Lab assay of single mutants.
Amino acid sequence: ETFPLDVLVNTAAEDLPRGVDPSRKENFLSDEDFKAVFGMTRSAFANLPLWKQQNLKKEKGLF
């Protein structure tokens, strides 16, 4: 299941849709939104070091 970017960005855990893991908001973006937000594919993002993934998520309001 995916959700629009505005539902996930800068949203407190208690305000997220049911079933969304607040530590993994990026997994609930569509592939198109994911690429638009991070400028890379999911596989490229997954290959980044964890610290870099976290920094990007913070920068984009998805942490």
Rank of each mutant, 00 (worst) to 15 (best):
E1V: 15
E1H: 13
E1K: 13
T2L: 08
F3S: 03
F3A: 04
P4I: 04
P4D: 07
P4E: 07
P4Q: 05
L5W: 08
L5H: 06
D6R: 08
D6I: 09
L8I: 07
V9H: 05
V9T: 09
N10E: 07
T11I: 11
T11D: 06
A12V: 09
A12T: 11
A12S: 13
A12Y: 06
A13H: 12
A13Y: 12
E14C: 11
E14F: 01
E14W: 01
D15A: 10
D15E: 10
L16A: 04
L16K: 03
L16V: 06
G19A: 10
G19R: 07
G19K: 08
V20H: 05
V20D: 04
V20Q: 05
V20I: 10
V20L: 08
D21C: 09
D21H: 07
P22V: 07
P22W: 02
S23D: 14
K25H: 05
E26S: 03
E26M: 04
E26C: 06
N27S: 09
L29I: 08
L29E: 02
L29R: 01
L29F: 03
S30E: 02
S30P: 02
D31R: 02
D31E: 11
D31W: 02
D31F: 03
E32A: 13
D33R: 01
D33C: 07
F34N: 00
F34Y: 02
A36Y: 12
A36Q: 15
A36T: 12
V37C: 12
G39C: 09
M40W: 01
T41Q: 06
T41G: 08
T41M: 07
R42C: 03
R42Q: 06
R42V: 03
A44P: 00
F45H: 00
N47M: 14
L48S: 01
L50N: 09
L50I: 12
W51L: 09
W51Q: 08
W51P: 07
W51D: 11
K52C: 13
Q53M: 02
Q54S: 09
Q54N: 14
N55S: 14
N55T: 13
L56Q: 01
L56K: 04
K57W: 07
K58L: 08
K58E: 12
E59T: 08
E59F: 06
K60V: 13
K60W: 03
G61E: 03
L62P: 04
F63W: 13
F63A: 15
